[in-house]
């Protein structure tokens, strides 16, 4: 396979994952806003935008936080480089670039969804359409993953797609946790307050983990248990531990196909050792922010090593 094609597959699934993560976050925001009055809703939208990592871009364009503004910003606004619309454009562009390395089924899943999303996001999205639009976007991700699983040869292309997906997912979860912990609360005295609990709920919902978490942890909503769930519980497909075990498996498969290990495998092993030997208490002792910072940078290093090992760009 061409290095450029591998790069296309990797990024196709990174962008798809990124768009889907934003959609999940948006979904969480919408659900919270529905249950609160307008004033708290403003607070909710502020934290949704902050969690998306686009606070600066948003505040450069808007003086206030309203639901309509916030969701249109995340969905389609041109001032937002990470809008779902532009992510999907990139997904499709990378799919076109890798057209002869993906199955027809996968291509059609991507292309059809892009046509639909492009149409739904052509105009500003009003209250009556926003839930449906978010559902379409989430379905698009599910459909593409299904087509990948159900129709792609278990060759290197398949593994490049999945490595892109899990590098992105791990990055997004770490970022969401960090923003929650480090940025969202006005001050430490709010820990344990209803604002705090509400935000943790949003975090869980934004990775679609609220039900799974409750099922495993009954009614206990505290920072430590939620962090343990999202960082270390490898049963949950949107935890850091799960992302890493998938990433490790796909990198191992790539090494097998190529007959040798690269820098990415070595970095993966190091990162694995650090994660598997940790308990949540140790993470909190070390400082959650420091831990997450360290995780994000090692995750990014693995991403770069994959690009170098498999000659994505040169």
């Amino acid at each position: 396979m061409l290095g450029r094609t591998a790069n296309g597959l990797f990024w196709m699934f990174r962008y798809l994952e990124r768009a889907e993560n934003t959609a999940r976050l948006l979904d969480a925001g919408l659900r919270m806003a529905l249950t609160r009055d307008l004033v708290t809703a403003e607070e909710e939208w502020r934290s949704v935008i902050a969690t998306s990592g686009q606070r600066q871009a948003y505040e450069a364009k808007h003086a206030s936080y309203t639901g309509m503004q916030a969701w249109n910003f995340l969905l389609r606004e041109t001032g937002n480089p990470a809008s779902i619309l532009s992510m999907f454009g990139l997904v499709r562009q990378n799919a076109r670039l890798s057209r002869n390395a993906i199955s027809g089924e996968l291509w059609e899943a991507i292309n059809e969804n892009w046509l639909m999303i492009d149409e739904q996001l052509a105009k500003p999205v009003g209250e009556n359409r926003v839930l449906e639009t978010v559902a379409t976007i989430r379905r698009a991700g599910t459909l593409a993953r299904g087509a990948l699983q159900g129709s792609m040869l278990r060759e290197e292309g398949y593994h490049f797609a999945l490595t892109g997906m899990f590098v992105e997912r791990a990055d997004a979860i770490a970022r969401i946790l960090d923003i929650k912990y480090y940025l969202l609360l006005p001050s430490l005295s709010y820990v344990g307050s209803s604002l705090d609990t509400g935000q943790w709920d949003t975090v869980l919902r934004s990775v679609s983990g609220d039900r799974a978490y409750r099922w495993l942890n009954a009614a206990q909503v505290d920072a430590r248990s939620i962090c343990e769930f999202l960082i270390l519980d490898d049963r949950f497909p949107r935890s850091l531990a799960f992302c890493h075990s998938e990433l490790r498996a796909n990198l191992a498969a790539l090494a097998r196909i190529h007959g040798s290990e690269g820098q990415s495998n070595a970095l993966m092993r190091d990162a694995d050792m650090r994660l598997t030997n940790l308990s949540i208490d140790e993470i909190f002792d070390q400082g959650l922010h420091e831990f997450l910072l360290d995780f994000t940078s090692s995750n990014a290093a693995i991403g770069n090593a994959i690009a170098a090992d498999y000659r994505f760009l040169s």
């Binding site: 396979m1 061409l2 290095g3 450029r4 591998a6 002869n100 290197e156």
Partner: peptide, 19 residues
């Protein structure tokens, strides 16, 4: 499916950059 940037001349042959 190659683009110009995937190809270069190596040892008298035209070669494509694979993974």
């Amino acid at each position: 499916l190659v683009e110009g940037s995937d190809l270069r001349v190596i040892d008298g042959r035209v070669a494509m950059r694979t993974t």
